Amino acid sequence: MLKQYLTEFMSTRLGVRRESNVLSTSSKVADDGRLYYQIEVNIKSYANNNELAVMPEDRVVRKEWDRRYLSVLGVENNRLYELRLQVPEEVFRDAENDLRQVMDSFRVNKITA
């Protein structure tokens, strides 16, 4: 999952660097009897203010953004389903309980023809 996130959020701009950390992984059987996996990842993006500068001191690195990615994965109908939430780290602290409720409510349904 971490490789997938980094691939999705890779930048083509010069002077951009992304750092990521897997914060937690877990699995649980929900009330519907299915197994769900939860993954939390933090990704920070840094960019140079002047990526074409010749002198290193003219390339000042600053943080562009710092985001938390919360994923819940479930399998049904031979397919992988994902609920992904993303929120700035500073917002996550205030909304953590609500976000975790959304994660816990995720369910996959069996489709019958």
Rank of each mutant, 00 (worst) to 15 (best):
K44A: 08
R84P: 11
S11V: 01
S24L: 15
Q101M: 09
E82Y: 05
D58H: 05
R17N: 07
L23T: 06
N97K: 11
D31A: 10
L99W: 07
R59V: 02
Q101D: 05
E76H: 06
E76F: 05
S11W: 00
D66F: 04
V22Q: 09
G15Y: 01
R79P: 15
R17W: 10
D94T: 12
N50W: 00
I39F: 15
R84Q: 09
I43W: 02
R18K: 09
P56H: 03
F106W: 09
K28E: 11
Y46I: 03
T25L: 09
D31Q: 11
A53W: 00
R67Y: 03
Y37L: 10
S11E: 01
S71I: 04
R107D: 02
E90Q: 11
E51N: 01
R107Y: 00
R34T: 12
A95C: 13
S45C: 06
N77Y: 08
E64M: 05
V87I: 07
E96K: 15
R62E: 10
R68T: 08
L70D: 02
Y81Q: 04
L35E: 13
M103H: 07
S45H: 07
V102N: 05
S26Q: 09
V22I: 12
E8S: 15
L70F: 11
S11Y: 01
E51W: 03
L6T: 02
I43M: 07
S24K: 12
G74Y: 03
S20Q: 06
Q38K: 12
V87H: 06
V61Y: 04
V41I: 10
R84V: 10
Y69S: 01
K63C: 12
L83N: 11
E82W: 05
P88V: 12
L35D: 14
L23R: 07
L70T: 03
V91H: 14
D98C: 15
E8C: 10
A95H: 15
M55Y: 04
V22R: 06
G15V: 00
D94S: 10
T7I: 01
L35T: 15
V61S: 05
Y37E: 13
R93A: 14
L99N: 10
